[in-house]
Structures are given as C-alpha cells and as structure tokens.
Design a protein around this nucleic acid. Structure first.
Length: 885
RNA sequence: GGGCGUUUAGCUCAGCUGGGAGAGCGCUACCCUUACAAGGUAGAUGUCGGGGGUUCGAUCCCCUCAACGCCCACCA
C-alpha cells in the first residue's frame, strides 16, 4: 500500500481550509454541551489602528486554547471579538494621513466632516487585525463582533454616565491636568512617562518688599515665574521663618506675592525656598489650595507663553527658559545655575513634554467604586492567576485618585452633557437633546469633549452582551454569559482596564465582570528586551506563521505561558516546535498504511503489556493536560503533550510496533493497529486546543464517517479504567535495560547494524518473564541476536562488558579483544557516582534524628533507595574484581 | 523615595505544602536503520547570585548583601 503523503507537513495548505470549514459549519457559535454550563471569554479589543503583534498573538493563543478546551469539555462557549476605537491613537493616525495627503489639519474641517473621515478610514483599514486573529486560529463567534463606537456601547456609555452624573459622582472641576501640547488634550497620569532630562537649577533673587533683604529661590523652570502667586518656605526653617507673612516681589513682572510657610518645602532641597506656581505644577497646585492662592495660567494650549509672559509671549517654554534666564542675568538677579538631572513627564503617545495646566475637566469620583472592587477580589469573587498580581491591582485601587475622563478630541463618545445658552442650565441625558430641559430654549449645545477610551472599555463585558438594550441583551444572551468566566490579558493594563471593568461592573450590575483573571507574560525578544519599533526587534506574527506555521507558533507561545512575567521569544524555538508538528505528521504517515484492520477496542484486559502501557501513559497525560489548562499552566500542558508524543508514542510505542505490523499474525496486527489508531486519535484531541490545524487535518484522515470534526469532539479526561500501573512500571524497567544495552554498544563503538548477544540477570521473577517475552523487541531496539535471561545466582559470562541498573545486570559477551582498561574505567566511574549517591542515603539511615522526625513515606523511600543502591554497588564491585583478575 | 518581582546547565525557563537538581533549544560523538536528517542512538555540562540563620534535612522558609527588571510617586 503506497502513501501519497509528503514527508513534511505543509501548514499553508491546511490552515485556511480548516478555518473556513469551522466558520462555515458554525462551530464557533455557542452550543449547549454535556456540562450544561457556559463559558465566556472576551477578547481584549485591539486598537482599530493596530497590527497584530507578538503580544496579541499570545493573547489569542492562551484565550483560544482555553476556549477550545472548554468547548470540547462540553461547555457552551462564547469567544467574543471586538475592536477599540482608541481615541487619540486613531485620530492622530488620520490627522497625519490627512496632513500628508491634503496638507490640512483637522481644524480645516468641521468636526462632523473630520469624524466622517475617521470612519471612512476605519472601514477601510480597521479589519486588518481581525483577519490576523483569524489566521491565528481564533475560534470567535464573529456575529458578536463589537466596535466600541457601535450604537449599543454608545448607549451603555451614556446610560452609565448619566447615572453617575445624577448621583453627583461625575463632576466638573478646575483641575491641574497633564496637558499634552501636541495633542492639545489632557492625558491621564497613566499616559505620562517620566524620563530623566538634563536641566538646571536656576537660583533667582526675589526682593522682599519694604526691606533690603532678598530670598534666593531655586527653580528648574524660571519661565513660569510669571505664574507665581507665592513664595514658600518651610515653617520650621530657621533661616527663613521670620519672612513668613511678608511680601516678596517677583522679578520681571514685579508682582507682589505673599511669603508663606508650607511643610511641603524641603529644607535640604535647592535653597529651601520655593516659588509657588499653582497653575503649572502639581505640588504647587496643592499648596495653592491649602493657602487659597490665586491661579494664573501663563500658557496657551499649544504650550507657548500667553499674554502673562510679557515680552516672552509666543515663545515655547524651552525657548522662554533660556531668554528669561539671560534677562535675569542681565539684571543681576540670577545668582547661580547648577546642572541638574530631573525627571520630566512626556506624553506616552506624542512624546512631547507634558505641561501641567489648569483646565475644566470631567471627573469620576471613584472612592466607593474602588472600595467595592477591592472587596470583590479580597473575597475571591474574582480570582487572579497568578495570585501575586492582586497586589498590583490593590495598590492602585486602595489609593485611587479621581479619574479624569474628558479628552479634548473629536473621535470618541461625546460627553452627554448639555448646556443651555439662555438660562445656563446644565444637565446630562442619554438622548439627543434639542431643547433646554428647564427653560425649553432651543439654544443649547453639547459638551464638545469626548470620553477617555477606557470609559467605554470599562463597560465592555456588559456592552458587548447587549447592555443596556433589553432586546439586544436577550439576543446576545446576557443572562447566560455575564459575568464572563475569565479575562485574559497582560499586566500592563491591570490599572487601565481590569480595575475599571471591576469598578464599573460592580457599580452598574452589582456583579463582578468576570470570575477569574489570568495575567499572562509580556512577550519580549530573545534578549529580554521589550519589543519596540525603535529597537526594530519586534517579531511579526505573520512572519512566524509564514515560516513555521500557526500551530508551531501557538505551541511556542503556549509552552512559554505559565505564571511567569516575561516570555523571551526566540524564533529558533518556534522552529523547534515546527519540527515537533512535523513529527506528529510523520507518526501519522507511519501508522496510516497499517490501519485497514483496525477496529474498536473491546476488552482492555486482552491487550498486551505495551498496549496497556501506552494507554496508561496516555491516561496520565490526559490528567496532566486537564489539570494544567484548568489553572492556565499552558507551559505544563505543552510539555506534557510534547513528551507523550515524542518520548512515549513515537520513540517507544511505534518502534515496538514495527515488528508486529510487519509480522504475519493478522489478529495481532489488527489489535496493534487498533491501539495505534485509538491512542493517536485521543492524542490529537488532547493537542487540539493548542495546535488546532494539524490536529483537525489528521483527524479528518482518521475519523469514522459518522464522526464530527475534531473541534467538536469530547476532550479526553482521566479514566481510572485506563490506568495500568504494573505495565507502566515494567515498561520503565524495560526501557532502562534497552538503554543500558545501547549504552554498552556505544561504549565499544559497535556499529548500529552489528548484532550482539546479551545476558540479563535479575532477581525479579516477573521481570524475567517480561524480558523473555520481549526477545523480538530487544532484537529490534538494541540489535540483540541471542538473549539469555536468568537469576542473579547464575554465573556471568567471562569475556564481556557489563552495565547495571538497580534491578538488572546487563552483560554483552564479546568475541574479540576488549579494552579492559576502558571497561574498568567506565565501571569505576559508575561505581563512584553510585557510591556518592549511596552515601547520602546511608547518612540519613544512620541519623537518629532523621529516623525519628522524618515522615513515614520519606523514610520508606530512603530505605528502598538505600537497598537498591547497595545492591547495585555490590554488583559493580563483584564485576570489577572479575575484570581486574 | 515607595512597592512588586527576578537571580537554577551555554541560552530560554520549570521545580507543587522543605526530603535523591529537571525540560526544551544548543553542544559533542557515531549513524542517510525501510514514518520523520525538520531524523535516530548515546553523551557532556550546575559552588540552584553571595553570606548568615531555622531544621534531622534548605533551590524551596527567615535575615542580610549584591545585581537586574517592572510599576507607582516625584524633588522646586
């Protein structure tokens, strides 16, 4: 029977084919399973501007593997895809594009026109990442696909906003915010990156009014002195405390400001004398509040100085700093300049220096919400895997600052607050208002700002399932899938996203949004560096898929995903798993021609030792896989299936089957073929969640006509009826002895083709039988010609090389000359190794305290090992003396 | 400055409640053995970061030092 299968597996031919069949066959849609339980996992919506990167690939791998696992286990599964509008990121992409193409900025368009352009861009390019998720094998129900700006999420945002607004938990306030002059928007604390920058301390002389005295103030930002409304010293400071209450005169603008005492001022730092600029410094803003200081804004929205800056008006801060310093120097008010490295906030997205600035912003009071979010995790309503990440979560929620939710952008959910231009009334509404709810005037306008992207992301577990639209909730089966079963994401967004979903869901639904959170590692390059555009060290998932196939890529990611915080991904490792996938392919190529006579296995007891052994090994592997995947130990699951396929099925079971399949007995052949097939099919099922494509492909070759696709098969679980401990134990000993023989052959350079005679001695009667029954296998696996098996009191062959295990002595008699020296050296090495081992146990046995304190099972094990090693040493010594004589 | 974490074979990492140091990749030698050279067989490699302590016993627990990483805050 000839086979047409090529020797290497081609991922390209199979992947797209199976994805289409799954999707067309509606296998991704939730279906009631045997557990009658549901399982829902929502994809963290990637940015609509995004391209799939290695982190996303890990997201999809861990999520999809889990979903496929649960689906096969009989849960009604929903894997829900989505897209995030990603306010700033998307708007700036389109702004850049429009500028490149038309040399226009968004201000050259009306808001409506420009937003239309962004939508057009989204329709054209926004689906790229979804196709890439498909290529990764994501078994999402695409009918659920939700975009954060879709009507229902929009309704959700408004509903939630209005609720909080009416409870006075959303309020507007003058606030010092991180102002991004490039984006011309406030950005959140979390979007500000602090980088060390070389700057300087400028020591400036401030005159004290009605006195000849001066104060020496140190600042890194002399240009902000136009916004100073006080000078502060520490009230404990002996040098300055007598100035408190007096008035200082600010240079250049000659404003008179009070000298105040405030504990924030550090006696050691600078000169111990601080200029207070509440409009442009976070700490100064706090000081200002404490002392009721006026706030002066000296900057325009683009970060240049406004009218307050006098002759420096219109200059950037950086430029103004130089000129102000120069001017002060000319006036002899600049006493000193000292170089100083200090951290400066930069916009994470724009990269420019963030200016603290006062503006009117919307805030959410998160005090109560955060408390409940903390309690939900403390009480295990939501569990973190690995548990350590709770700390990160708590750290943020236990000391929350109110959340600034307004953004000065056009792309996003517009804040549903309306103002009456006639009576000044302000109200929030989830509807499109046309008249003032108070005076009925038609002259109203909506707040121009949009909401922080995380405001809509925070409602994601609810809004994707239809909330708050009752009709949609019914259709999308909110009751079944909310709360979600688990959230899988990276630790970098525990603050941004996880915490907010927890708060918002508890507030709105009085329920946690998901029962478990698995935090996976961050993918780095093989040197452990973050993948970044600037380093050019990013791994493009598509290159990997192209080069090695999706299954190999998924397997590599899964094998690195456990409770660790980083995966250093080296493409070479993916290559290694590509080889593994190919191994599976070739295992199938081997068994395929023999399967004709295969039937279902009726009586396990009638199987032979090796057949029971492989089934038992399989059973153990199934147990491990189930346990590991249940707790997100993808690494353990991968290594379990890897070693089963490689070390058990291929290296031993297939090798042990060759002589049977090439033999004469039809009956024995059929039985072996049946077991080969049975285990292979089960093995495909075990692997399927991690490597869906090749397993589905091979399944299609092996399945019975009435069997469904693999994706819909039951996941193998531990079955006590498939456990054969004795067979596993004897097989292990057999493997040891075969390896021992091979080892001996290698030690005297016997050619792989040449046959040898072997004599085995053991005191274990069962083993004697077992070995005798395995004559043909010794011949096949170790090129043994004649095999003698006997008890240890028989005499050993004289001219021979030997090896020894704890249960069996192995002799290979040799005709020609053996290098006695070499053999003695080898045995002596083995002896000293064994003796070193033995000493550890001997010491324990002689240690009274150990025998008194150690638990029973540990003592037993030590005794057993001690006895086994003692016997091995005995045998080694005996044979050594024979060699030497 | 505050917090969290890491340090185990050349590399990437496992190691469960303390009880004989593991895997994959890489490396070496020999093999084109009839599923697979993307293969087979055999093999080498560790002061488990340093020091101290608890214990009959420590890679694991405690203290301390060092290096590295991440997060938060921030000094005028």
């Amino acid at each position: 029977m000839s086979t047409e299968l090529p020797t290497t597996y081609s991922s390209k031919d199979t992947e797209a084919k199976w994805y289409k069949q799954w999707e067309d066959g509606k296998y991704f849609k939730p279906k009631k399973g045997k557990t009658n339980k549901s399982f829902c996992l929502i994809v963290p919506p990637p940015n609509v501007t995004g391209k799939l990167h290695a982190g996303h690939a890990l997201d999809i791998t861990t999520q999809d593997s889990l979903i496929r696992f649960k689906r096969m286990k009989g849960y009604e599964t929903l894997f829900l895809p989505g897209l995030d509008h990603a306010g700033i990121a998307t708007q700036s992409v389109v702004e850049k594009m429009v500028y490149d193409e038309e040399k226009k900025t968004r201000h050259d368009f009306s808001r409506e026109e420009f937003v239309k352009k962004i939508w057009a861009w989204k329709e054209e390019y926004g689906n790229t990442i979804l196709d890439q998720q498909r290529a990764m094998g994501a078994s999402c129900d695409w009918d659920y696909l939700t975009f954060t700006l879709d009507p229902i999420p929009n309704q959700a945002v408004k509903r939630f906003f209005v609720e909080l607004y009416n409870q006075k938990l959303i309020y507007q306030n003058d606030y010092i915010v991180n102002w991004d002059p490039a984006l011309q928007s406030a950005v959140s604390d979390a979007e500000v990156e602090h980088k060390d920058v070389q700057g300087a301390f400028y020591h400036i002389k401030y005159q004290i009014k009605g006195s000849a005295d001066t104060l020496e103030v140190a600042t890194t930002r002399p240009e902000t002195l136009f916004g100073d409304t006080a000078v502060a010293v520490n009230p404990e400071d002996e040098r300055y405390k007598h100035f408190i209450g007096k008035t200082a005169i600010i240079p250049l603008c000659n404003r008179e400001v009070p000298i105040i005492g405030d504990e924030h001022v550090d006696l050691e730092k600078g000169t111990g004398c601080l200029k207070v600029t509440p409009g442009h410094d976070f700490n100064d803003f706090e000081i200002g509040k404490r002392h009721n200081l006026p706030i002066i804004n000296i900057l325009n929205k683009d970060g240049t100085l406004n009218d307050q800056g006098m002759e420096f008006k219109g200059l950037s801060c950086k430029e103004a700093r130089k000129r102000v310093a120069k001017k002060l120097e000319e006036l002899e008010l600049l006493i000193d300049t000292k170089n100083h490295m200090h951290p400066v906030g930069h916009g994470e997205r724009s990269g420019v220096v963030i200016e603290p600035m006062i503006s009117k912003q919307w805030f959410v009071n998160v005090k109560d919400m955060s408390k409940r979010a903390v309690e939900a995790v403390e009480s295990d309503e939501t569990k973190f895997f690995p548990k350590e990440w709770e700390n990160t979560y708590f750290a943020w929620l236990r000391d929350p600052k109110d959340w600034c939710i307004s953004r000065q952008l056009w792309w996003g959910h517009q804040i549903p607050v309306f103002y009456c231009d006639e009576c000044g009334h302000q109200w929030a509404s989830e509807h499109n208002e046309t008249e003032c709810s108070k005076c009925k005037s038609k002259k109203i306008h909506q707040d121009p700002d949009v909401l922080d992207t995380w405001f809509s992301s925070g409602l994601w577990p609810m809004s994707t399932l239809g909330w708050p639209n009752e009709q949609a909730m019914k259709e999308k089966r909110f009751e079944t899938f909310f709360p979600n079963s688990v959230l899988i994401t990276g630790f970098d967004i525990i603050f941004f996203w996880v915490a907010r979903m927890m708060m918002m869901s508890l507030k709105s639904q009085n329920k946690v949004p998901f029962k478990e959170v698995y935090i996976h590692a961050i993918v780095r390059d093989k040197l452990g560096r973050k993948m970044s555009k600037s380093l050019g060290n990013g791994i493009d998932p598509f290159d990997m898929i192209e080069q090695y196939g999706t299954d190999a890529f998924r397997f590599a990611l899964a094998s690195g995903a456990g409770y660790n915080r980083g995966i250093n991904l080296d493409p070479e490792r993916i290559g290694g798993y590509r080889n593994f996938i190919n191994k599976v392919w070739n295992a199938y190529r081997f068994i395929q021609p023999h399967l004709e006579g295969a039937t279902t296995i009726k009586d396990l007891q009638k199987l032979d030792h090796h057949e029971r052994w492989i089934i038992s090994e399989f059973n153990t592997t199934a147990k491990l896989m189930n346990e590991s995947l249940e707790i997100y130990r993808y690494d353990d699951a991968s290594s379990a299936i890897y070693s089963f396929v490689y070390d058990k099925y291929c290296s031993w079971f297939i090798e042990l089957s060759k002589n049977i399949l090439n033999g004469d007995s039809k009956e024995v052949k059929a039985q072996r073929a049946s077991v080969l097939k049975f285990v292979f099919k089960k093995m495909l099922a075990l692997m399927h969640p991690i490597t869906p494509f090749i397993t589905e492909e091979l399944w299609s070759h092996l399945k019975d006509k009435n069997e469904d696709l693999l994706i819909a098969q039951a996941y193998p679980e531990f079955d006590p009826a498939l456990e054969f401990k004795d067979d596993q134990d004897q097989m292990n000993k057999f493997v040891e002895v075969v390896t021992g023989i091979r080892n001996l052959r290698a030690s005297v350079n016997i050619k792989p083709k040449d046959e040898v005679n072997v004599e085995l001695f053991t005191d274990n009667q069962d083993l004697i039988h077992y070995f005798r029954n395995n004559l043909v296998n010794f011949q096949e696996l170790a090129r043994v010609k004649d095999l003698k098996v006997g008890v240890k009191d028989l005499s050993r062959p004289s001219k021979s090389i030997m090896n020894i295990t704890t249960h069996t002595e192995i002799f290979v008699p040799l005709e020609g000359v053996i290098d006695l020296k070499e053999q003695i050296a080898r045995l002596e090495k083995e002896l000293s190794k064994t003796e070193a081992d033995y000493k550890k146990y001997e010491a324990k046995m002689n240690n009274e305290n150990f025998m008194k304190n150690a638990p029973e099972n540990v003592r037993e094990e030590v005794k057993r090992n001690e006895a086994e090693l003692r016997e091995k040493i005995c045998g080694l010594k005996e044979n050594l003396s024979q060699f030497k004589s």
